[in-house]
């Protein structure tokens, strides 16, 4: 599938009607989501034929993008039931099968090595401190191949250090810097559109048998 085609299909997904501030429910726009998954597939071969998990899937954009790029099995995980219902609707509209689990990412427990790739647009941790790192460390615990994630560019040095030192990553690489145009989703955003620089990261987890814990 071509990038433009992927972006077009993601652009047709239904977004949150009533986003929840405490969960930092910013939808992942089709521009960013399509580039994230397209790169994962075409530069690293991490999607097609793989088992993919989308952490904090919201309305399902990254999960659906994975399924569109021929992931063999996709599981979207979110704490919020309304989001999961929306993700289900979006997947059904495109005749895609994705599995969904309602769970708080920090309490997730996945056994074995079945999940190859984790994709996520985590909360940036501005409303609940550390939420972004909870997502990242769980992603690196669960994935056997790679973790793709978005983090504010302003936190780049910190993310790199924390991923390698505390989260079992053997490599942490910024693939590109993107502009995240946050539409005026919440009342506390007083400017019309807030443009945030975000990094698209690819992390490689340490092999399970080489981990200290």
């Amino acid at each position: 599938m071509k990038l433009k085609q992927l972006e077009g299909l993601l652009g047709g997904l239904t977004q949150f009607a009533d986003p929840k501030v405490e969960l930092e429910q910013y939808a992942t726009g089709p521009h960013i989501a399509s580039r994230m998954l397209y790169t994962a597939e075409n530069s690293f071969d991490d999607i097609s034929g793989k088992v993919v998990a989308d952490f904090g899937c919201g309305c399902g954009t990254l999960a659906i993008a994975s399924a569109l790029l021929d992931a063999e099995h996709v599981t979207g995980i979110d704490i919020d039931l309304q989001s999961l219902e929306l993700a289900q609707e979006n997947a059904t509209d495109l005749e895609l099968d994705i599995d969904l689990i309602q769970c708080d990412i920090k309490n997730l427990n996945l056994a074995g090595l079945l999940v190859d790739t984790v994709v996520m647009n985590p909360p940036f941790g501005t409303k609940r401190k550390g939420a972004d790192m909870d997502f990242l460390s769980m992603g690196l615990k669960v994935a056997s191949q790679a973790v793709y994630s978005l983090h504010k560019t302003s936190t780049r040095e910190y993310i790199k250090k924390a991923a390698i030192r505390n989260c079992n990553a053997i490599s942490a690489e910024v693939l590109c810097e993107l502009r995240y145009a946050l539409p005026q989703t919440y009342k506390f955003h007083n400017k019309k559109e807030v443009d945030v620089a975000v990094d698209l990261w690819r992390f490689v987890p340490r092999a399970r048998d080489e981990r200290a814990s």
């Binding site: 599981t75 599995d99 427990n109 074995g112 079945l114």
Partner: peptide, 21 residues
């Protein structure tokens, strides 16, 4: 939920050892 998901899903209730299968 398909059975592939069941094959990697575990419980994480406080006090459990593996919570699996």
């Amino acid at each position: 939920m398909r059975l592939l998901t069941h094959n990697f899903l575990a419980s994480n209730v406080r006090g459990v050892s593996t919570g699996y299968p």
